[in-house]
Each structure stands twice: as structure tokens, then as C-alpha cells.
Write a protein that binds this DNA or RNA. Sequence first.
DNA 1: CAATACATTGACCAATTGGTCCAGTTTTTT
DNA 2: AAAAAACTGGACCAATTGGTCAATGTATTG
Lengths: 206, 206
Amino acid sequence: MTDTKQTKIQLKNRQRIMDAALEIFSTYGYRGSTIEQVAQAAEMSKSSVFYYFGSKTEIYVALLTKTIDGWLEPLKQLDENGDPSKEIWAYVERKLEMSRNNPKASRLFANEILHGAPNIMNILKGDLKPLLDEKCLVLKKWIEQGKLVNVSPHHLIFMIWAATQHYADFEVQVDALIEGCADRDACFNEAEATLRTIFLNGLLPR
Amino acid sequence: MTDTKQTKIQLKNRQRIMDAALEIFSTYGYRGSTIEQVAQAAEMSKSSVFYYFGSKTEIYVALLTKTIDGWLEPLKQLDENGDPSKEIWAYVERKLEMSRNNPKASRLFANEILHGAPNIMNILKGDLKPLLDEKCLVLKKWIEQGKLVNVSPHHLIFMIWAATQHYADFEVQVDALIEGCADRDACFNEAEATLRTIFLNGLLPR
DNA sequence: CAATACATTGACCAATTGGTCCAGTTTTTT
DNA sequence: AAAAAACTGGACCAATTGGTCAATGTATTG
């Protein structure tokens, strides 16, 4: 897809559009966003946007597929030869870090899934599922070795996804309901401490 | 608001519209839904929909506010005089049950929050926050009495919300990634067992 | 410098859609 | 049964919006 050579301007402007589109699509959803908004955020005319991308859908799908690799990465790093507790906690930390550093991407995905994942169902079943199944086998092994309590590996992973992505997807709710935390960092630190306590204590056999 | 007397037909048709609107709005989001779709789902003409509701927004807001009470209910039931573990687990169960029985309502809220909660921010801050703060004081008391591990009460609640609502909001992802479960009930039962193990084990001091 | 490819945008088009209006129908009331 | 009220939906309107196109501007290259 990205094989044809591109000028500096093309590269720069396509990037500008993608950045703007992430901002807009993650905030208003696909149907709720207009190309005019994206164009304004990218500081160019609507026509220019269509010069670089063929359609609204093309931009949206490009965004989704571009960020999905980064989405799979944290799980890939789960090492079956490492210490179970350390590995799982490291995974939770990576996921939480993603919610902290790139909440827009998280919301973009959440939106897509919420609406039935019409554009990324093939990626879910084609890339994510095999990876997930593979890592769940590792968890299963750890459980059988008595290193973790006996839970469903798949649902444990779901729980980690849910608990970490919550801070990106429901950010405005979290912000509205918490006032004690001095700032965003303090809030994330408290979240991290709570997740660490519950996951590590919860997964360690007694 | 609902003080003026209504005929049987009004009551029935308004309900038909609300049901249809929940179906449509929860699937496609506010901007992604059209009144025509709602009308079709309610088996009446678009004009008739506008006869019963003044605008698209009015239907949407009516839906949100109508279901929000049911949303607060489970947390209200958390009893400070009960056994901490039992109370928290009962709360998790109630929340999970809501995801199972009314996933559309969950997705409707998720959508609204994801887009910045423009229509329910006042409810979040006005009704939910005081209730949440109150119950967090109860959790704090339990922690100080050494009945629970030391975590941030607010973040514990967030974790419960995230882990339970995930099964409604990300239903299509869960369905796409799990094949082992025979049916929907079996999946929820496995989820429940996993949540029980981690939360109860995780919250109990050693 | 001239020719050519690349880049930019305002004007325009057609489809969609929230919402109105009114003429006709059904239900309720007297 | 007649009058009044409630209900229904087809036709229509105006605003929005995804997308096109031709005209103009700007690099790049021989």
C-alpha cells in the first residue's frame, strides 16, 4: 500500500491529516465527524484532504489499521519464560501506559468496537485472536503449575483490558468523579497502585 | 415532565419509540442514527415519531435520563453494615447482571461518555458523584478496619465498572475472541467465576 | 526559462436528514 | 350521531455533507 514513492509534502500532509483525523474521529466517532472538521484541524481545505485520501472511510480505516499494531504489541511481549506475576504486571503496566499516553487511539477503537467493529472484525479474528489464544495457553500453563490461581485466561485478559482502557475510554467520567487527585499523573499513579494490589494479590495462590 | 395525563395510545407509542430508539442509538450512536431508522424500528412513520417527541435530541436525552436511575441502583444497595467481601461481590454480581440483561443501555452510556458526556455531565456530577463519594467512605472505613487490602476506593469502583461493563460494551469483541464457551450464558458464568476469584482473593488481606 | 508534474482551493452537485405542514383518518366525548 | 380531539403519514423544505472538477498556484526538472 505504501510502496509508491511519496514527496516530502505528501508525507507531511498525509501525516497532518491522520493526526487531525485521530483527534476528530476519536472525539465524535465516525458518523459524528465531518471531513470539514478534519480539514480545519489539519489546517487545509476540504478539497486538499480529498486530494490525499480517496474517501472519508479510507482515512478512518487507515487510522484504525495504522494504530492496531501498537495495540497488539504489549501482549506480544508477554514472556512465557518469565516470572508469572512479574510478566502479568508488566503487561498491565504497558496497557495502562498506553491509556495514559494515547487515549485517543483507545477511544477510536472503543468506538469502533461499540458499533459492532464493522471495519476491524477481520483484524480481530485474523491477528488478535491467534495471539490471544497463544498467550492464554501460557497463562494456562502457569495455572497448571500452581503459579497462578485458577481463572479463565481469556477472561483475565479481558479484565486487564477493561481495567486499563477504562482510563482512556471513560476519561471524562473519571475526571468528573475524582477531585482528590492533584493532577492527571497523580490519578494514574493511584490507579496503578490499585490495579497492582488487586491483580497481584488476586492472582497469587494462598 | 410526565405529569400531563396521557392516553393509552400515547403511552404505548412513546414506549415503542423509546424501545426502538434504544436499539438504534445504542448500536449506531447519536449522530450515526436517523429518526427514519427509529421510526422503522418502531413501525411507524417519521412524522409520527415527531408527533410524540419534539426532536431527535429529546428522544436521546429522554432515553439517557430514563435509564440512569437503574444505573445508580446497584451502588445504592452497598450496605456499610454488611460483610465487606460479601457486599462488594454482591455489587459486582449486580453490575455484571446488568451487562448481561441490558447491554444496550450500557452501550448507550458508554457512547455518551466516550464522546465527552455532553448530555449527562450534570447527572454525573449531580447524582453519581455524591453517591460514589459516600460509598467510597464506606470502603475506606473497611480498609481502615483491616477488612480489605489498602487500595483507592474510587479506583476499585472504577475497576469494577470497567470489568463488568466490558461484557456489554465490548460484546462483539468478546464474542469474536471466545469460541470455547458453548453459549452466552456459559461465557458469562466463566466471566463471573474469574471476577469472583480475582476480586475476592485480591481484596482479602493476607 | 520553459515545460511539466505536483499541490491547493472555491464553486458546485447530489444525497441525506432533521423537522414542518397539512389533509385525511380514527378515536373520544358530548 | 355529530363535533371535537387525537392520530397518521405523504409531500415538502432547508441545512448539512461526502465527493467532484476545473482553474489557479507552486515546485521541480530538463
